[in-house]
Design a protein around this nucleic acid. Structure first.
Length: 558
RNA sequence: GUCCCCGUAGUUCAAUGGAUAGAACAGGAGACUUCUAAGCUCUUGAUGGAGGUUCGAUUCCUCCCGGGGGCACCA
């Protein structure tokens, strides 16, 4: 529809001798202004030196009656042109959504793309906190958006299993004598190791020795301890990913790419990297960035070198890739600018391909910045546990067949909504109380609306009622919103911004709830009841598809 | 010090340079008691400050104030 309107405008402007004018076509905030509006006359008037309103009238005369989908076009305000869409269009959109079902909203703007999509990538051995969930939640949603646009996704997890953090944990585990099979002992060991590293010189030296030994792999005892701890951590991570609805196509461990990375840096020392103070660095200053160390003065690879190895490993697995995305916290913005600059030089075949970093926001709590020292770290586990507890309180009269799985779905949905509702990349102030409220703008609000739609459909089916096409003269507010879904998916995908979808779905659910409050749907005596049922079914298709893109479950009963 | 991001109701968030800045929570009022009340209706309340560009600025530019992040051997 938007495309059709643009064509009309372009044709009308061309008749005025204007082409390639950058005009906007948008939905007016106030629906009484119509379904679409354009600033074409305002923009073009400037070029022509004409009166905007007079020009608008001219353009309207050009466009009037050219499309059966448009009922009326009028000039308003300083020279906006408002389009009112015909009733029949809305009814067709309802039918279209129902006919397309799961495919409704998809497009092919990324057809043919093979995308390496790295996200989640936690540090094994460090307790997972809410911040770690953000990358997974945003990454999962963006990857689903890309798939909805026709791309082939290669989901990659790149957990860190070697390096100083792991050394701190292994050292700590020796110190505490904790059980390497116990996830809590793993977390405690890291805390102890980290604290000792920062406050105790002797411990620091020992931890660095542990680090070297783990890289060298020559101390069987340390090696075994590390492996046992990592297994525990990894099991824990996989369980979390299952709950969050993520499954990876490939997992690359930092330890398996550190040699490759080191080798790549050594090979390119001289042409890409330079030696400096005993370390090997990439002189980013030459490219307007900053210098970063790739091999430290002990000759060990840093995150930088390992990321080169990581990339080499990805290429080997998926040689026909076209795009490579990495989702991480926003604090790594500048890091990736440097890394990509170096990668372009080490891997010349990346020249005609896309390398991009998708930063997520920095997460703080309403109670302040998380810090293990302050003891206010909100772990992923404890948060999900509190959420499930709240959900259980609500679900006492649930109609769900499997209550346990519903509780988990709703808890995860509440969390995901909370993270995805705001623009990706913006810092997040995580409000735990709000996440637990389950009311108003929330995951459960959308899920509940979906369950309600399902329930109505179920009731209609039981009553032997069929969906129909005989629609009332004036379209429902819900109809005037429903057809926009594909536009929203397009925009969210284009901007890697799932929050557009969240905002849209919340409004959609709200309109449905308002519709539901005043209209009886399953009603024998109402000639429009079959159409209302059609509309409900279409709305459920949109809500279900939208929730799927966010990675949130769409339960049929709650 | 320097670079990047941010500053919108009491709070947490929206708003491709457009029309009267939207929601939700919290606060106030109400309806229904018939398809799921995790719902619906009404209501109080905001663009950090000063300039500039523009027909039009929350959005772009400059400065100031405030917060966060990066800047060589962590990830």
């Amino acid at each position: 529809m938007e495309g059709e309107i643009r064509e009309l405008i372009d044709a009308a402007l061309a008749a005025k001798g204007l082409d390639a004018v950058a005009v906007t076509v948008e939905h007016p905030a106030d629906e009484s202004h119509g379904d679409y509006a354009t600033n074409a006359a305002l923009v073009a008037a400037k070029r022509l030196g004409a009166n905007p309103r007079a020009l608008a009238e001219d353009l309207v005369a050009q466009m009037a009656g050219k499309s059966p989908n448009i009922e009326s076009i009028e000039v308003a305000g300083p020279g906006f042109i408002n389009f009112h869409i015909a009733r029949s269009f809305f009814a067709e959109a309802v039918a279209n959504a129902r006919a397309k079902g799961d495919a409704y909203g998809t497009n092919d703007t990324r057809k043919g793309q093979e995308i390496l999509f790295e996200y989640t990538s936690p540090n094994l051995w460090k307790p997972l906190h809410v911040g770690n969930l953000v990358g997974n939640i945003v990454g999962e949603s963006v990857s689903r958006l890309f798939e909805a646009e026709g791309a082939t996704l290669r989901r990659i997890n790149y957990p860190s299993d070697i390096g100083l953090t792991v050394a701190k944990g292994v050292w700590g585990l020796k110190k505490t004598g904790g059980d390497p099979e116990d996830i809590n002992a793993i977390g405690e060991a890291y805390r102890v190791g980290n604290e000792a590293y920062e406050t105790d010189e002797t411990a620091k030296t020992e931890i660095e020795a542990v680090n070297r030994a783990l890289y060298a792999g020559d101390d069987e005892g340390l090696k075994a301890l590390r492996e046992r701890g990592l297994r525990t951590s990894h099991r824990h991570l996989m369980e979390l990913c299952r709950m969050l609805g993520t499954s990876f196509d490939l997992e690359i461990r930092e330890s398996e790419v550190s040699d490759i990375g080191t080798e790549l840096v050594r090979t390119h020392t001289g042409d890409v990297f330079v030696e400096s103070n005993g370390a090997v660095v990439f002189p980013g200053e030459q490219y307007g960035l900053h210098t970063r160390v790739f091999l430290n003065s002990q000759g060990l690879p840093t995150y930088e070198a390992k990321d080169l190895g990581n990339f080499a490993r990805k290429e080997r697995a998926y040689p026909h890739w076209t795009h490579s995305y990495i989702v991480t916290g926003g604090e790594q913005r500048e890091y990736f600018m440097v890394l990509f600059e170096a990668m372009r030089r080490v891997f010349p075949d990346t020249a005609d391909k896309i390398l991009a970093h998708i930063p997520t926001g920095f997460l703080t709590l309403t109670t302040g910045k998380m810090s293990s020292r302050k003891g206010n770290v909100l772990t992923a586990e404890s948060l999900l546990a509190s959420l499930m507890e709240e959900v259980e309180k609500r679900a006492t009269e649930s109609r769900a067949e499997n209550l346990a799985s519903l509780v988990e779905e709703v808890a995860v949905g509440a969390l995901k909504y909370q993270i995805l509702r705001q623009a990706a990349g913006q810092d997040i102030v995580f409000d735990k109380e709000r996440a637990l409220s389950l009311e108003g703008d929330s995951g459960p609000y959308l899920m509940y609306a979906h369950a309600r739609m399902s329930s109505i459909e179920e009731k209609a089916a039981a009553a032997g009622m069929h969906a129909g096409t005989d629609a009332p003269e004036v379209p429902y507010a819900l109809e005037r919103f429903l057809y926009r879904f594909p536009e929203v998916v397009l925009r969210a995908g284009h901007e890697c911004a799932p929050h557009h979808l969240v905002v849209y779905l919340t409004e959609l659910a709200s309109r449905f709830n308002a519709f539901y409050a005043v209209e009886k749907i399953v009603d024998d005596g109402d000639p429009y009841a079959p159409y209302k049922l059609s509309l409900t079914k279409a709305a459920r298709v949109v809500l279900r598809n939208g929730l799927a893109l966010l990675g949130i479950a769409a339960p049929e009963r709650m």
